[in-house]
Design a protein around this nucleic acid. Structure first.
Length: 347
DNA sequence: AATTGGCTCAACCGCGCCTGG
DNA sequence: CCCAGGCGCGGTTGAGCCAAT
């Protein structure tokens, strides 16, 4: 048995809203509010519309201070960075862009921004991964890579592709690394600056000995945690976030630290989202020296097999509750596998 | 001038999550 | 604990517009 429909579909008007319907809905909500029940709202106003349709119309079009079109370069960068970090969580992305709706951002991404970013890639040959590798070899690797990517979801492929492209610096100097946005306060929207104090003290206990009780004690929803973690990644250092420096970050210069912390942010975020945050496992273990040695041995033994590499360089996936097989790992954590491959290519 | 194909975006749909009884 | 109703989200659709042919 299927779910009961939210309204009487036969007696409900569908399609574009008329000016009269708009003004009725707007006037009512401005005077009385939604009353906490969208389903009952259309009857109260005398509109032959589904409650969900009213909600959508209000949120996406009639609500005050809504902006349509005219996305700025800064907004492009925020959308791109967040999409790479968290994927198509449009409502969370929209929450970072005042006046923008999730629907608007989703449409903008699907119709323009994605093409703007990914389109550039086709225009240029891939940069060889090794100094002695020809462009032809690099391009043939890309074809192989795109075949392998068939096992990933469309979204995962897209994010990997974007990540790789931006690593190559083909779009904007500000996005040489997609997370350069996070480490560049000049690019942050204004509200981040005002939120800094509240977020760092209320939710992540800067320099706390152990951040876990803070997270566990939080009453925030999963979505709020994601949003806050994004903000937290922007406004506090990894050291602040963990309460202690990771072994990797202690050993590295600031330039190295950037790539380490920025890559690790994705891991941190996933841990947080999936409620299995374990500071002992955070810190991009593949960058530890012993793993680098193991990576080199692996390269000699297996060549460039991505699956094997990700198996070797995500050894703690079981303990952390991640999927144990690399296909699932790649599907759910494309950034993790991508990092394995990118790191391999650097060697 | 007519046709066609691509693009945009408002709106719809289905489903998972949350909450209150 | 269970269930029903409502909410909110992400994916998809299709009408309208516009440029190219």
């Amino acid at each position: 048995m299927g779910r009961a429909p939210c309204c009487d579909k036969a007696n409900v008007k569908k399609g574009p809203w008329s000016a009269e319907e708009d003004s009725k809905l707007k006037a009512f909500i401005e005077e009385h509010g939604t009353g906490g029940n969208w389903i009952a709202l259309p009857q109260k106003i005398g509109l032959k519309r589904c409650g969900k349709s009213c909600r959508l119309r209000w949120l996406n079009y009639l609500r005050p201070n809504i902006k349509h079109g005219g996305f700025t370069e800064e907004e492009d960068q925020i959308i791109c960075s967040l999409y790479i970090s968290i994927g198509s969580r449009w409502s969370i992305i929209a929450a970072q862009l005042p006046g923008r709706t999730d629907n608007d951002i989703k449409n903008y991404w699907n119709t323009r921004l994605k093409k703007k970013l990914l389109g550039k890639r086709r225009e240029q040959p891939r940069r060889p991964a090794h100094p002695n590798q020809s462009n032809e070899e690099a391009n043939s690797m890309e074809v192989k890579s795109s075949t392998e990517n068939q096992t990933l979801s469309a979204s995962a492929r897209e994010r990997m592709q974007l990540h790789m492209q931006l690593q190559g610096g083909l779009y904007s100097p500000n996005l040489l690394n997609p997370f350069s946005f996070y480490s560049s306060p000049a690019l942050w929207p204004k509200q981040y600056h005002s939120q800094t104090q509240a977020l760092s003290t209320n939710h992540f206990a800067v320099n706390a000995v152990n951040p876990i009780p803070v997270l566990q004690g939080s009453t925030a929803t999963k979505e709020e945690l994601i949003t806050k973690s994004i903000n937290a990644n922007i406004i506090i250092t990894r050291e602040d976030f963990l309460g202690f420096p990771s072994s990797s970050s202690m050993e590295n210069s600031s330039s190295n630290l950037d790539s380490i912390t920025q890559g690790g942010i994705q891991v941190d975020l996933q841990n947080l989202v999936f409620n299995n945050y374990d500071p002992s496992l955070v810190g991009h273990q593949l960058l530890e020296n012993d793993h680098l040695e193991e990576l080199e041995r692996c390269r000699e033994l297996y060549g460039s097999d991505k699956e094997i590499l990700s198996d070797h360089f995500w050894p703690a996936s079981n303990e952390m509750g991640y999927p144990s097989d690399s296909a699932s790992l790649a599907l759910e954590y494309p950034a993790a596998q991508l990092d394995c491959v990118l790191r391999y290519e650097e060697l």
